[in-house]
Simulated assay, not measured.
Amino acid sequence: MAKAAIHIEMPLGVVVRKTPGVTRWASWNWRAVAVLPGAGPADWVELRREGDAVEYHAATLPLTLWAAETEAYMANLADSQPSIYLVMRDEAESDRPMNAVLVTASPFEGQDYADSGEDIVEKIPMTEGLIAWVRDFTLEHHRDEAFVKRRRDKSRIDLVEDGRGDARIRQDSDVYRAPRRIAQ
């Protein structure tokens, strides 16, 4: 009998700051700067403007914690600054500057998205309340897995089998023999 997936979810607002770019190749610099636990729905709502710098409540996404991922959350909480990882995509056909796709507390999942090279992954510091929420869930559901050392296979791989060829093909002589000269 399969065990039901245990998870909890919280809406998490994401604040993104837009500042002027410093090179001629990037006219704007986009950076995730904060999270808003329990935020309501939003779609690029302007929060604050200071000269050319603008902060937006870009999106509200569900932060889901899974009981099977507690090892990743433990690694995140052990970091000097526990963080939320925001995955964004720059989609040209969209009317939004960036599409916020996912928020996660798992550094392993954040790394998986960063490895693809197609997504932008931003690390956002967690608030104290969010750290406590993740820590409480993790401590409740984390189970240490005992290390099991695997046994070595006893087959001999150091034996030499030169000239054997494919065992499925029946031949009387060496498969890799030199071609014979045809006498004329």
Results as ranks from 00 to 15, higher is better:
residue 3 K to W: 01
residue 3 K to Y: 00
residue 4 A to V: 12
residue 4 A to N: 12
residue 8 I to Y: 05
residue 8 I to S: 06
residue 10 M to K: 04
residue 10 M to T: 07
residue 10 M to G: 02
residue 11 P to I: 09
residue 11 P to V: 06
residue 13 G to S: 09
residue 14 V to N: 03
residue 16 V to E: 03
residue 17 R to E: 10
residue 22 V to T: 14
residue 30 W to E: 02
residue 31 R to Y: 00
residue 32 A to H: 08
residue 33 V to D: 04
residue 33 V to N: 06
residue 34 A to T: 04
residue 34 A to Q: 07
residue 39 A to R: 04
residue 39 A to M: 05
residue 39 A to D: 12
residue 41 P to D: 12
residue 41 P to R: 10
residue 41 P to Y: 03
residue 43 D to M: 11
residue 44 W to R: 01
residue 46 E to H: 00
residue 46 E to P: 01
residue 47 L to A: 02
residue 47 L to W: 07
residue 48 R to A: 09
residue 49 R to W: 05
residue 50 E to S: 03
residue 52 D to E: 15
residue 53 A to C: 11
residue 54 V to K: 03
residue 55 E to T: 03
residue 56 Y to E: 05
residue 57 H to T: 05
residue 58 A to R: 05
residue 59 A to M: 08
residue 60 T to D: 08
residue 60 T to E: 00
residue 62 P to D: 10
residue 72 A to D: 14
residue 72 A to R: 05
residue 72 A to H: 12
residue 77 L to S: 06
residue 80 S to C: 00
residue 80 S to Q: 09
residue 80 S to M: 07
residue 85 Y to C: 06
residue 91 E to M: 10
residue 91 E to A: 15
residue 92 A to R: 09
residue 95 D to K: 01
residue 96 R to C: 09
residue 97 P to I: 07
residue 99 N to K: 01
residue 99 N to V: 02
residue 99 N to G: 00
residue 101 V to H: 10
residue 102 L to G: 08
residue 105 A to I: 03
residue 108 F to C: 01
residue 108 F to I: 15
residue 110 G to Q: 04
residue 112 D to Y: 05
residue 113 Y to Q: 08
residue 113 Y to W: 06
residue 114 A to H: 03
residue 115 D to A: 15
residue 119 D to H: 11
residue 119 D to E: 12
residue 120 I to S: 07
residue 122 E to L: 06
residue 122 E to K: 09
residue 124 I to G: 04
residue 127 T to Y: 07
residue 128 E to T: 10
residue 131 I to M: 10
residue 131 I to D: 03
residue 132 A to H: 12
residue 132 A to F: 07
residue 133 W to M: 09
residue 133 W to V: 05
residue 134 V to K: 00
residue 137 F to M: 03
residue 143 R to F: 12
residue 143 R to M: 10
residue 143 R to L: 14
residue 144 D to C: 00
residue 145 E to I: 08
residue 146 A to G: 11
residue 146 A to M: 07
residue 146 A to P: 03
residue 147 F to I: 14
residue 147 F to E: 13
residue 149 K to D: 09
residue 151 R to F: 08
residue 153 D to A: 02
residue 154 K to A: 11
residue 154 K to L: 09
residue 158 D to S: 02
residue 160 V to F: 05
residue 160 V to W: 01
residue 167 A to W: 10
residue 168 R to P: 02
residue 169 I to H: 13
residue 172 D to K: 13
residue 173 S to T: 14
residue 173 S to A: 13
residue 174 D to V: 13
residue 175 V to L: 10
residue 176 Y to R: 13
residue 178 A to K: 15
residue 180 R to C: 02
residue 181 R to C: 07
residue 181 R to Q: 11
residue 183 A to N: 06
residue 184 Q to E: 13
